[in-house]
Amino acid sequence: MIRVVINGKACTAEKGESLLSVARRKGIDIPAFCYEETLAPYGACRMCLVEVVKGAQEGITTACTLAAAEGLEVLTQTSEIVSLRRALIELYLAQAPRSEAIRALAQRYGIQKTRFARKVRPDDPLQNRCILCGLCVRICHDVMGAGAINYIGRGHFTEINTPFYEESAVCMGCGACARVCPTQAIAFEDIVQTRTMKSWSGTRVPLHACSKCGRHFAPAPFVNYARQKLAPDLQQTPLRLCPDCRSREIARKAVLLSTGAAVAD
């Protein structure tokens, strides 16, 4: 363990740990959109800018990519940083005018409106909320191994979608993209036995039915994927029950065990 100083407060950290993670553990608020613990720090959204006042490289840098080192001292709320963040927020308001997350942050920083041209497209599959941080692209490819979506185009016209704007053959419907999205831009909908990834060119994924109650509760390709990840002896126990039925089943077995009755499967 080492010691770093954030806003004059001493904090303990693992050597090399992301400074953003140290600060958050300590309850020091640094805004960030593109930080996700399961992925390597990326420094894309620039919201977590902090000022290093003592360390290997003094100056302004992103906290997520800043590795904790003994004696490191940073400030997170100097007037310069606040003014940089305010400019970024204005840019984000223009890029993703419908994002609640960005509006909320803007409000906290006392920003009413943006000086930049707002990008509003009535038919935007990402609901005019996408800030192109790339978390969805990275989680889909790096963690889920699917790579169903990616950036398309360049510059001002960059967007994220499936290749050729067609239904994806590799999307598992896991919804990890929607889960990591910092601006809730990604929409999907479950109707009876089909999940439709509305943001991803209407990609449809069949849902797996619970073997007990019959409710369709999880995307079938994802259930198969999860099964492959299990140890070989566990793969035989299929994921056939929905979470509700499974907890009922576990409770039933526990009760039977406590009464000493033989447990039937």
């Binding site: 490819h141 790579g147 169903a148 990616n150 950036y151 398309i152 360049r154 290749p163 050729f164 590799v170």
Partner: peptide, 21 residues
């Protein structure tokens, strides 16, 4: 592009991304 995605073992989405960039 579809053939190369299989051949180079990379997602089609990535090739499409490069092609449009």
């Amino acid at each position: 592009l579809e053939y190369l995605a299989r051949k180079l073992a990379m997602p089609l989405s990535e090739l499409y991304s490069i092609a449009t960039f």
